[in-house]
Amino acid sequence: MSYEVIGITVLWLFLYGYVIVASIDFGAGFFAYYAKVTKRDHITNKLISRYLSPVWEVTNVFLVFFFVGIVGFFPSAAYYYGSALLVPASFAIVLIAIRGSFYAFENYGSKQSNVYLFLYGATGLFIPASLSVALTISEGGFITEENGVVSLKYFELFTSPLAWSIVALAVVAILFISASFLTYYASRANDKPALQVVRKWALFWATPTIIMALTTMIALSQRNERHYQNMLDLWWIFSLSMGFFIIAMGLLYIGRNYGTAFIAIMLQFFFAFFGYGMAQYPYLLDPFIHIEQSVTNESMAIALIAAFIGGLLLLIPSLILLMRLFLFDADYAKGKK
């Protein structure tokens, strides 16, 4: 494999990691607020905050990893995306900042107020919406470059069916992933009442997820024929994704093996995500950033890959330790520690 393919694969893996951990986090925020409004918070919110407290910082690092890495491997990404995304990405930063810091303030500072829970729930949905702009513009046609000035066509963006269906897909997928994770976590903690509530949420959000995925495909076919055709050629990957979705739904419906169900959902998204990414190859930004032509020099690529391997050797054991102490320690999940 060439360096650029290794590079983009690794980065895509990180983005996938972010999508999963952040979805859990963002969705949990929304559910916490929803439960409060519907007066079910006494059943669920203890569970939610026990999971979230130790991991919120780790979630953020995944994102930083991705964009620092992409700029490292493909410096022209900084130029095009950086120039075009000034406004949407700045909004994302502000929302992330509000969410992260409010989380710390409220948790360690004082009692939870309704305003806080609302902000916490709302930012969780707006952050993915603003970040998804990057995915939309990568399809091409939203950026102009004139006299060395790169700008984003806002009108085009806001009237694009593709943009809106990606936003909607991001939001419903987040709620689906998050609810199915909470189902697993509740079963782990042996918390029957909470389990009943969150399992219903998971079952509910599955349908819109699939509908939005199909809608997005249709919108994509109108926007970027090449990408769409490539996806059709990769049909087997998307069938795998669908297969895992059906397995997960079956398990959730019968009401057993929630751990397996969640892994199936992770695999469902893994295949969909990689299928989508592979079909976009060889462009990072159609037509400006071509993966092979815009990769950084060889010595930097090697150095980054080496740093990446070294970093993983350091991180994986630490992450396992973290998960053993908090996620998979049944006593902790139950609240005994």
Partner: peptide
Amino acid sequence: ALPLFMEVFAFFFEAI
């Protein structure tokens, strides 16, 4: 890019 990339690893490690 290299130090920026490694910096994030260091944060990750610290955060965990």
